[in-house]
Amino acid sequence: MAVSKDLVAASAAPMVLSILAEGDNYGYAIIKRVRDLSGGGMNWTDGMLYPVLHRLEKQGQVQSYMQTSVAGRKRKYYRLKEQGAKALTEHRNQWMLVHTTLQQLWERKPCLT
């Protein structure tokens, strides 16, 4: 099952912030993590992640720095900032509210009497 484009776009920022909350990471690894966790269902166009990261950086939620990997590849890593952690809490509250609301609606048994 593939998730719709609108939902992918809406969940991009909380998804990225949540992954960065686990530790500093770079673009390719973030995409890979999303792909693995969703079993391929979150069908991101890889290149679209970077404008999201840049927007979060401009908003002061993440910070980037360059680091060279063991294989000698220069990678741009992103780190979650305090403002990003606050934004993540806000995202989390909103998504949990949506989630519990939908869950209650979908779990309600039809009344036959």
Binding site: G27, Y28, I31, D46, Y50, H54, R73, K76
Partner: peptide
């Protein structure tokens, strides 16, 4: 250029 570098890195990893 730095954005293109970042995308190229991604392409090479893939």
């Amino acid at each position: 250029d730095s954005d293109v570098d970042e995308l190229e890195n991604h392409l090479r990893e893939e």
